[in-house]
């Protein structure tokens, strides 16, 4: 039994199909990279996994559980921007990952001190100790994304969803973030879905690379059909992109 099961998922907006017949099984601990043309529905797919939006048809389950109706603690997320709370210090952003699940959203006294200590350990691990008391606006883009990832992981989600998390970073910072993420994953064995525009990044980090594309194309009405997973590459072994195709593709080779 696979860990995350996506079964015959369709999604349309205002009757316009964006995704159609998406099927995929993901094992626990796998790192899935998602690539595809701009506007083909990668973020939409991620929002479906997140349960921020519900599929028009089909179902997404984690460990055969219930279909989620809204985002919850099982799913962590990091967006390209706006992923941390601007009105909280760096440390409080990490503490919030623990305290938000409580009734009032606040920790007091001993619990607060405990959470702060754990937050400081997390910050030391992600290299943000020296800015613990700063507000996110004073951090560089790479530091903000490190904070966002640290925050998401503090809540101990079962799957981590990343939507172009390094899209706004310069190439050098990107490489540093790759190392950061690789090391983090080696430690947590988290199941990750990451949307990226950078194929190299996708193959470098991912165990599998899913390609979203439209299998059918109506030249008179480009919006007539939705996108689906057209390729599912095995990206292990240094991510050399001409690996065996693991699953059957949904398109004839001529398409």
């Amino acid at each position: 039994m696979s860990f995350v099961t996506v079964r015959d998922v369709w999604k349309s907006y205002d009757g316009r199909p964006i995704l159609e017949r998406v099927n995929v099984d993901v094992e626990e601990g796998e790192f899935i990279s998602i690539v595809g043309a701009s506007g083909c529905g990668k973020s939409t797919f991620l929002r479906l996994l997140l349960a921020d939006e519900l599929p028009s048809r089909g179902a997404i389950r984690i460990e055969q559980g219930h279909r989620a109706m809204e985002p919850n603690q099982e799913r962590g997320v990091v967006f390209q921007r706006y992923s941390v709370f601007p009105h909280m210090t760096v440390r409080d952003n990490i503490v919030a990952a623990e305290s938000f699940g409580t009734r009032s959203g606040w920790f007091f006294g001993k619990r607060l001190r405990g959470a702060r200590e754990r937050a400081d350990e997390t910050l030391a691990r992600i290299g943000l100790s020296h800015v613990a008391d700063n507000y996110p606006a004073t951090l560089s883009g790479g530091m903000q994304q490190r904070l966002a990832i640290g925050q998401a992981l503090t809540a101990q989600p079962r799957i981590l969803l990343l939507d172009e998390p390094f899209g706004a970073l310069d190439p050098g910072t990107r490489l540093a973030m790759h190392d950061f993420l690789t090391e983090l994953r080696a430690r947590t064995k988290m199941t990750v879905f990451m949307v990226t525009h950078d194929l190299t990044e996708g193959f470098k980090l991912g165990d599998r690379v899913l390609v979203f594309d439209k299998p059918r194309w109506d030249p008179h009405d480009p919006g007539a059909y939705g996108a689906t997973i057209t390729y599912d590459f095995d990206a292990r072994d240094e991510g050399i992109p001409f690996q065996t195709i693991k699953e059957k593709t949904h398109v004839p080779v001529s398409a």
Partner: peptide, 15 residues
């Protein structure tokens, strides 16, 4: 994104 993030951290509507 911020509202979604808060939900993934387990925040209720009140929080």
């Amino acid at each position: 994104e911020e509202i979604v993030k808060a939900q993934t951290l387990g925040a209720s509507t009140l929080v």
